[in-house]
Amino acid sequence: MSVTKTDAPMVTASNEPTDATEPAGSARSERLSALVQQHGALAVLVIVSLVASFSFDSFATGDNITNMATSSAFLAIVALGMTFVIITGGIDLSVGSLFALGGVLAAWGSRHGTLVALLLPLAVCGLIGVVNGLLVARSRLAPFIVTLAAMLGARGLMLALTDEGANTYLIAKGSFLAELGQGSTLGLGNPVWITLALFGAGAVVLRRTRFGQHVYAVGGNEDAAALMGAPVARTKILVYTLSGLLAGLAGALNAAWLASGVTILGNGMELDAISAVVIGGTLLTGGLGYVSGSLVGVLLLKVIQNVINQIGSLDSSYQLVVSGAFLALVVIAQTWLGRRRRLM
């Protein structure tokens, strides 16, 4: 684009820089609110972790931390895909079922080698993601219904593969796949490294590519995005595909970690993923969000779970109560911040 140099006078607003914006005071509180929204979850995570490590001897031990990290990895991968979907203003309820299906497919395929064990779940779950995306973007159906249908369908498919859960496929010890799930590098489990790599890539894609810009634009104002030339339909199809792929991959890695395709996994996982994403500062209404926040959200859920487990006297059922209460608090705080910033 060219910057035209004409001798048209600089107009009034240019002499008073603050003219075009709101008063300076509100700009500062805006920045503060934005900071809280983006990093509030991280602050809470740090505080909760510090309190826990002072309160329980067994919290800040190497074993406990690596265990928490590994068990967080699978949910985190699912939440990564969910972050993209939610930023476009959508929702993906099928990821829990895809996670289970991915695990079973990986275990079933492992007898044909690691390549099949990884590619099969990716292909099937990715394809279901594509179908989700097509139905949402092209047929303009509500994401909630489309992915609810996919959730039921994928769970059914998984049950069919395992004779209603009677068959559990095992992953042979010592295979590359088992190593991928169970082995560790530099003291951290391989799934953790894979998760970190995926989040790094996810952050770059979201912040530094055109596709990422389109994800934000579609969620921020779909009609305007279309008028501005953003490929709305393609963007939506891609995010649901990505979500499906990541859910399938997470399932496969989880199966590798457990050495079998466990059929009862993934129930309600979509809700955990959504919780983590929202806790991480992504707006459920779309247009604003961060992958780093989702990672923090997952860790926070895990730490709370771990702390409750540490309090031996507390029934683990309360863990759900605390997680629920926590989510409610976050949503209230976010809504409040959002209203302050006039996002909603």
Partner: peptide
């Protein structure tokens, strides 16, 4: 008809 949550520069250059 722009996208309020994106930065000014990104709105100007989107696409």
């Amino acid at each position: 008809n722009l996208i309020p949550l994106l930065s000014v520069a990104r709105n100007l250059f989107l696409g």
